[in-house]
Design a protein around this nucleic acid. Structure first.
Lengths: 186, 186
DNA sequence: GTCTATACTAAGATAGAC
DNA sequence: GTCTATCTTAGTATAGAC
């Protein structure tokens, strides 16, 4: 898996080839078929592996305000995305012609998706539109970053500004503040 | 050019091949080299062609308020993007391994970029951060739309909501209202 | 689980005749 | 400007022995 990612980073996601992979592993190409049914199956394994690495970021820190809650999730996520643009591309953009993740792999992605709102849900009653706008804003920063300033920080450094665009919309829907973690004396 | 786009839509951008293109044009494959120096050169021509189709949308309608100015540009742009996801992918995402646009082709992209702020600039003193946030928000809607709901409208229908996120930030920087087009009596 | 050998298909590109 | 023929490389995948 690690070698597959390595090659994808070097030659592009679409440029990944089973021959190359076998060569770098010191194997003959057909030996790979003991581990993987097809190239599509390899992409699927990488897709699952990629989303598992998002889950490995752990649960976002809880927070008492919307802005902090958002930043607690999105800052590590953006950091994670920058670590490996090719991984982000496989997981979040429809880029290789026929690929669609299998149901089990997609389930991992969904778990990561759900978790990304776990610090926010206690504070705000979110609609699907809210969630979609949040993911869009962050995806937009990353999309522009990778496309127009690869290796730089021109867009991702605007993360706090971007979050501040969304905060007012969410603050309007704040829950009654259950004081869930018992931090507030009265 | 039209046939090249057609094939890219059918087989994916990376799946486009010179052989297929020649076949569909009723030519032998090598004959294409009279028109194009290489496959990369074909992509470059498509890139230029794609941005020209953005310019063909015309100049955005002027407006008196920030929100309308933004929607006058972004609504047709989103419409244009939805018409051809593959075109959007070539122009706005780093997806095919080695491709970078040539300088002349990139200049067309820059013209389209500049024009996309022409309805807003008379109203607001924009910073680069403002421009980057605007492009990111729209790019985010489109990126999510294509990746997670291809053919649908789940994200793009949030365009007005997305614009409303940005408007307050821009209103804070409004210019003194030069009444440029002489519509306001006093 | 790994190998050799191989089948099959297709890619981008060039040479040189017409 | 278009053709035929060909080069070179590479892809995914299978068969069958060890």
């Amino acid at each position: 898996m690690a070698t597959a990612w390595e090659l994808a980073r070097e030659n592009g996601l679409a440029g990944l080839s089973l021959r190359d992979l076998a060569r770098r592993l010191g194997m003959a190409a057909p030996s790979l078929y003991s581990y993987v049914d097809s190239k599509a199956d390899l992409y699927d394994a990488m897709y699952a592996d990629g989303w598992r690495s998002v889950l490995a970021l752990g649960h976002p820190e809880p927070a008492d305000d919307v802005r902090t809650a958002l930043l607690n999730v999105q800052r590590p996520y953006v950091q994670w995305a920058l670590e490996d643009p090719v991984r982000y591309q496989l997981l979040n953009q429809r880029t290789i012609p026929g690929f669609e993740p299998s149901a089990p792999s997609y389930a991992i992605a969904q778990e990561a998706y759900a978790r990304s709102f776990s610090s926010l849900e206690p504070l705000v009653e979110l609609t699907q539109g809210d969630r979609d706008l949040i993911t869009a804003v962050v995806a937009g920063l990353l999309s522009q970053q990778f496309a127009n300033d690869p290796g730089g920080t021109r867009w991702v450094r605007l993360l706090e500004d971007a979050v501040d665009l969304v905060v007012p919309r969410l603050e309007a829907k704040k829950k009654p503040a259950a004081s869930a973690r018992g931090r507030h004396p009265q």
